[in-house]
């Protein structure tokens, strides 16, 4: 998750102070990825060092405001124009667990699959309930929850696929 680009994109709407950025980020992403305010200020310091943001005086309450610089604006434009790079898959505990479960005596891989399926569907139910509870018209937050819903659905489909493969293997089919 690029907090750096998230904050820069928000600053393109106008100058803001740290806590304001934290709140705006969380409101826009449906509080799915909470930021701590320390993380926001650390990121702002780095962005300032790199010339992507600059201090922009204070608001009437004395909060230090930040604005995006021309370099920062170009950085955000680049971000929008590029696809998000997916890194090499991290070591996936679930995939490893299933791989080990297959063929190990005393472990029923189908039960391992089912426990995971139940847990993932339960997570899906929670995402769906959160989505249903959103105020009408909150498209931004809804999109973020959709991302979680579709990721969970993909996992269930993969589990279904694994189970079908296991059944075939068990029945001796190719």
């Amino acid at each position: 998750m690029s907090v750096k680009h998230g904050l820069l994109a928000l600053l393109c709407e106008g100058p803001r102070y740290g806590y304001e950025l934290k709140s705006a980020f969380e409101a826009r992403t449906g509080t799915t990825w909470p930021l701590n305010v320390g993380q926001v200020y650390t990121t702002l310091a780095r962005l300032e060092r790199d010339g992507l943001v600059a201090r922009d005086g204070e608001d009437p309450e004395g909060h230090a405001l930040y604005r995006v610089t021309a370099t920062g604006t170009r950085e955000v434009e680049d971000w929008w124009s590029q696809a998000v790079e997916r890194e090499a898959p991290p070591r996936d505990e679930l995939a490893i667990k299933l791989a080990l479960a297959v063929g190990l005596p005393g472990v029923d891989a189908r039960d391992v699959l089912q426990r995971q399926r139940t847990a993932t569907v339960r997570a899906l139910q929670t995402h769906t309930r959160k989505k249903k509870a959103l105020p009408a018209g909150d498209t931004a937050a809804s999109l973020v929850l959709d991302a979680l819903v579709f990721a969970a659905e993909a996992e269930v489909r993969w589990l279904d696929h694994c189970e079908a493969r296991l059944s075939r293997a068990r029945n001796g089919a190719r």
Partner: peptide, 17 residues
Amino acid sequence: THEARLAGWADRVVFLR
């Protein structure tokens, strides 16, 4: 349903095998 995304709307999801 075979679509988990739709089952997410349910109060309970029952798994058959």
